[in-house]
Amino acid sequence: MQEISWQDFEKVELRVGTIISVSDFPKAKKPAYKLQVDFGEDIGVLQSSAQITRHYQKDDLMGKQVIGVVNFPKKQIANFMSECLITGFADENGDIVLSSVERPVPNGAKLI
């Protein structure tokens, strides 16, 4: 494990957002969804590709609050530009389980 400074951690913008749109992403190499996530007034709506099809159906994701990194550079995935990284943890099979908040908080709230 590599140790980082507090200043390094402060640079990472981990914010809460609400999923407002989910669609299939057939051009992705691994099964994935295209997500649109509302991160509140200051950040706005960002899109992301998420390999979460194993544990989540599209309808289950609508309105779900998730934690995302909103200050990484954009990344092209197939024909799609991902603007944020939605966070999660791999289960025992390597399938992603989303990280989320225990109770509703305002979109754009920063992890502190």
Rank of each mutant, 00 (worst) to 15 (best):
S82R: 05
S99M: 13
A90Q: 11
F80Y: 12
A28P: 02
D95W: 15
S21P: 00
D95S: 12
I77A: 00
W6Q: 11
P26A: 09
N107Y: 15
P73Q: 03
D60I: 15
M1R: 15
P73L: 09
Q76S: 10
W6M: 07
C84D: 06
M81Q: 14
A90F: 11
E10H: 10
D91N: 13
N79L: 01
G40M: 06
V101M: 07
L85I: 11
F89T: 09
A32M: 12
Q47D: 14
G108Y: 10
E10R: 01
M62C: 05
D42P: 10
Y56F: 09
G40Q: 03
I96A: 04
V12R: 04
Q57C: 06
P26Y: 03
T87L: 13
I43A: 06
L111N: 06
I20S: 07
Q65A: 03
M62P: 00
V69P: 04
D8P: 02
L14K: 14
I4S: 09
L61D: 02
A32D: 04
G94H: 05
A50V: 11
I19V: 13
V45M: 04
I4K: 00
V105W: 15
K11L: 14
G88N: 05
F39M: 10
G63C: 09
H55S: 01
V97E: 01
N93V: 04
A78C: 08
P31E: 07
F39N: 03
S49I: 09
F72S: 01
I52W: 09
A109M: 12
F9I: 11
P31R: 00
D95Q: 13
T53E: 06
Q65M: 04
A50F: 02
D60A: 15
H55Q: 00
I112T: 14
V101H: 14
D91E: 01
G88A: 07
S5P: 11
P31K: 00
P31G: 05
G94F: 12
I86L: 06
I19G: 02
D38T: 00
G44M: 08
L61G: 05
G88V: 05
Q76L: 11
V37C: 02
L85Q: 08
V45Q: 04
Q7W: 08
K74H: 09
L85W: 13
S99K: 14
I20H: 05
E102M: 14
F9V: 13
T87P: 05
V69L: 13
I52T: 04
V105L: 09
K30E: 07
K64Y: 14
P104M: 04
K27E: 15
E102Y: 09
L98Q: 06
Q47I: 01
N107R: 13
T53Y: 00
K27S: 10
R15T: 04
K74P: 01
A32T: 07
E83Y: 05
S82Y: 12
H55A: 01
I4R: 00
E41V: 13
P31C: 06
H55G: 01
Q65L: 04
A32S: 12
L61M: 09
F89E: 02
K34M: 08
K110G: 07
F25C: 11
A28T: 06
S49Y: 02
